[in-house]
Each structure stands twice: as structure tokens, then as C-alpha cells.
Amino acid sequence: MYNLFLRIILLRSPSSVFSHGFSKSLLKSLRFLSTSSETVSSPKSSSLASNVVQINNNRKAVISFFENHGFSESQIFDIVKKVPLILSVNPETLFPILLFFQSKAELGTVEKTVATIKRFPRILGWNLSVGPNIELLKQIGVPDSNISTYLQGQPKIFLTSSVRFKEIVERVTEMGFSPQRLQFLVAVFALRSMTKSSWDKKVEVYRKWGLSEEEIRLAFRRHPMCMAFSEDKTNGVMDFFVNKIGCQSSFVARKPSLLSFSLKKKILPRGYIYQVLLSKGLIKKHANIPMFVKISENRFVEKFINPHKEQIPGLLELYEQKLMDSRR
């Protein structure tokens, strides 16, 4: 009952603090929270009064905990504003995950820890699964630097039940990924984002384009995120390269990173230029298709448009028009 009461109070009260601003220190603002009539008005029982005291003491303890571990007022403010319910947490439960972040998980600095919490605040409530999941990765040889990269950039990868996380890791290992490479975690992230039924549907999309089971597995090993795109996106890209450009479907399986580029904003405008140059005999069929898509905008104009301005007047204008059309 106390925990429910506490959560109700905290869900309401942070807005009171933030609406009044933080012209004074964070602790003074929180002191306002403790005495605000909006938070609790005239407790009618000793039990209710006792709960209020416990809530206020807990808030002070949480703030003190962060201060004692090197967090500045502004950093504490950022965390409390992002995760108001942090004020309801027993500080003792925060210590293991904070220790893990700053020493074991290679986040190292308070700044990186705050950034991670702000990016994905739910991680504070999942310390029981985060630790075992990272320990599992360490046990199989995933480098600390790779774990740190994903913990900072995509912390939700670790917010999975230990049982499911282990199943995903085992599956990725069976597929031939090396734990020493960052690609291993990319594959874990991709599989975590979908259910088995979602995976099966995406496999079926590739099968309809004539890819074998082995070709699909090869594509996933080379670029795991190729299985994370929507079925519409995959069909659109496959249709362009197979039906418009005339590539074999196996070509895309060998170059699955092509699927990561925007069909509308990059593949189609540049594909148009490819078809124009091909029709004029200025390039060979299927030559440098990955480069056509991957290189920077300036490099694309420099390499594929400027050299052919004289042979094809208005080529740059045609390309720019295609780019404008893609933004509509």
C-alpha cells in the first residue's frame, strides 16, 4: 500500500517542481515538493503522515546518493526530470547498477552514465537483468569496448529477460558470428527487435525473391539489420535492383547493406542517373552499383555527374529535380 501511495504522489508532484522552475538549487526545489499542498493536503491519519515522512526522507536519500557519487546538481536534475519515479527508489538498489556503469560496464564517467540514463531511463529499473546479460557477453568473449558502445548507444538491447537474452546470444553464435566483432552485438540487437513470427515473415519475403535459405543467412551475417527492415522496404529495394536495374536477387544478398539506404531519397534518384548513363554507354552494366548508392553526395556528383555534363546537358539539373521530388 505504501509503494502505491508513494508512486501516486510522485507521479503528481514532479510537475509541481518543474512548473515552478529551478531558479534555486535542486535540493531547495525538492524541499518545495516536500511541503507543497498539492503533494499532500492535511493528512487525516498518523499512517498517512508517516507515509509522507517516508516519501520525503526517501527523496533526500536519493538526492544524497547521487551527490555522494559525484553527480552535480544539474546532472541530478536531468535524471529526476527524465525519471521522476527515481525519487521512489531505495538508494540501496541504485548502488549496484551505478557501480556497474562506472566501473564494470566501461561507461566510466558520470557524464556517460547520465547520458545513458537520459537516453533510456528504464535501464534504472532493470538492473537485475542488465548485469547478468552483460556478464554473459563477457563470458563468451565480447570485448568490453563493444559492450560499452552498445550500452551507451542502444542500452535497450540489454533490457531483456536473461532467459530470452541467452537464447538470442546462442542463436547468434550458432549462425557463425564471432563474439570478438561488433557485428555480433548488431545481430543480437536485430534479433531482439523481432519475434520468431516476424523473423519468419521476413525470411518469406526474401524467399519470394528467389533467395535460398543459405543466401538469406549469408545476407544476415554480412548485415544483420537487413532482417530488421519492414517488409515493404525490403520489397521496394528488391524490386528496384531486380526489376529496374536487372540484377539477380542474389546480388542483394551479397550486398545487403544496400537495404539500409533510403529507397526514396537515395536509391531511386541515383538509380535514375545510373540508368541514364547506362543508356548512353557511359558506364558498364552493373558496374559500381554499391558505390552509386553509398558514397557521399558531393562525391557522387563529382564522380558520376560532372564528368558527363558535356555528353548529357542538364544532367545535374535532372538529378537535382529527382532529389527535390524525393522530398515531397
Rank of each mutant, 00 (worst) to 15 (best):
R192P: 08
F184M: 14
S262C: 08
E231H: 06
S249D: 04
E215N: 04
L185P: 11
D232A: 07
R181G: 09
R207N: 09
L191F: 07
D232N: 08
E204N: 15
K244A: 00
F261V: 01
S193E: 09
S193T: 13
V242T: 04
C247G: 08
K244G: 00
F220K: 10
K255T: 13
L218V: 12
G210C: 13
W209E: 07
V237D: 02
E204D: 15
Y272Q: 10
N235A: 01
V188K: 12
L218H: 12
V242C: 00
H223I: 06
P256M: 09
F220Y: 04
W209R: 13
I273A: 08
R221A: 08
F189A: 15
E204K: 15
D239V: 04
F251L: 03
E204Y: 13
M238S: 02
K201D: 05
L191Y: 07
S193Q: 14
E231Y: 00
R192F: 03
F251H: 04
M194T: 09
Q248N: 11
S257L: 14
M238F: 00
A187G: 14
V242M: 00
F220T: 13
N235R: 01
M225Q: 15
R270W: 03
F241I: 10
V203F: 07
V186G: 13
G271S: 05
Q183R: 15
Q180V: 09
R221G: 11
L268E: 03
S250R: 13
S178T: 08
K196Q: 13
Q248V: 10
